[in-house]
């Protein structure tokens, strides 16, 4: 694909004024040095990133970072964190909590490409079905994501990504779950303290057993606005929408607070609240520490 072609998409997503205003100068900002000073970079903060929180896919609330929108900005780095999800249906005598210790590492391959490996290294799940309670602790899913920046200018960048879900989950008896998630993400930063993030992805999962395979397909989109009122603190507010075979799955407002401890290190606390749709989860939250450079 011609790396300038997505400008049409940028116009659609960001608005004609913003895109067109940057179009001509951007012709000169495609060099790697410009990328470093472009929409992804800030003087005293880690690279820009959306709210990196997911509701998984195929009814599994956490499949590492499967079903999340990655940063459109390339980087190398890692993160260590915890996630937690909650589903309470008192009238149905049902409750579910999951918690994961998540690890993620990203390696920049070149100026336009980077790869992320993420894993739910320790996964705790409990389901309370009236008084029938289970609480397994096991290894969760692993994903491998390849990112490629498709177009960049001074204020915006569009990145394609392809994520593979690898079947490292140990808690299943009869199925191995794999998946593929193509998508794109973008960042638009008209000001050093403001940025907009978004993305669309098309996650497909397959539950494979010796007797056959069943699929899920849950197209999803996110849009987040980030504001850095005062260093080192950044606030993000956004929304995620997802559809699936069951129809509209959810519309989830989400928010995050991020503290940029150094130019590379950060801590962020994020949460999302699925509303509407058929999704029954009440909330999902994460707390991450990471370093990106």
């Amino acid at each position: 694909m011609n790396r300038h072609a997505p400008y049409a998409l940028a116009i659609t997503l960001f608005g004609a004024d913003a895109a067109l205003a940057q179009a001509t100068p951007a012709q000169e900002q495609l060099a790697p040095t410009v990328v470093a000073a472009g929409p992804c970079a800030r003087p005293r903060s880690a690279p820009r990133a959306p709210i990196e929180l997911s509701l998984g896919a195929a009814g599994v609330p956490s499949l590492a970072d499967f079903g999340s929108t990655p940063s459109a900005c390339g980087y190398s780095g890692f993160s260590v964190g915890g996630r937690m999800g909650l589903l309470i249906a008192t009238s149905a005598f049902y409750g579910a909590i999951d918690a994961e210790a998540a690890l993620s590492g990203t390696v920049r391959i070149d100026e336009d490409s980077w790869v992320t490996l993420a894993i739910d290294a320790v996964r705790y799940r409990t389901v309370i079905n009236a008084s029938v309670v289970t609480a397994p602790i096991d290894l969760g899913a692993t994903t491998l994501t390849v990112h490629h920046a498709l177009a960049t200018d001074a204020d915006a960048q569009v990145t394609l990504f392809l994520r593979a879900l690898l079947p490292t989950e140990l808690g299943n008896r009869f199925v191995a779950r794999i998946g593929l998630e193509p998508g794109f993400s973008f960042v638009f930063s008209p000001h050093r303290r403001w940025s907009l993030h978004g993305g669309v992805s098309l996650p497909v999962t397959a539950a494979i057993s010796a007797a056959g395979t069943s699929f899920t397909f849950t197209p999803r989109a996110t849009f987040d606005a980030a504001w850095l009122p005062v260093d080192p603190f950044e606030a993000l507010l956004g929304v995620e929408a997802r559809v699936g075979f069951d129809g509209f799955e959810f519309l989830a407002p989400r928010l995050a607070l991020r503290a940029h401890l150094t130019k590379t290190a950060y801590i962020d606390l994020a949460a999302m609240l699925p509303l509407l749709g058929v999704e029954r989860s009440l909330a999902r939250a994460s707390l991450n520490f990471g370093m990106r450079w």
Binding site: L144, L166, P167, T168, R173, S209, A210, A211, T213, S214
Partner: peptide, 27 residues
């Protein structure tokens, strides 16, 4: 990356061999 991919594929294949006959479970 190639190593990681190979490891993931091996893991996938191992997971796809359940301990019991799944009968109709995947249908």
């Amino acid at each position: 990356l190639r190593g990681l991919g190979a490891a993931a594929l091996s893991c996938a294949l191992a997971q796809c061999a359940p301990s019991k006959d799944p009968g109709c479970l995947a249908n």
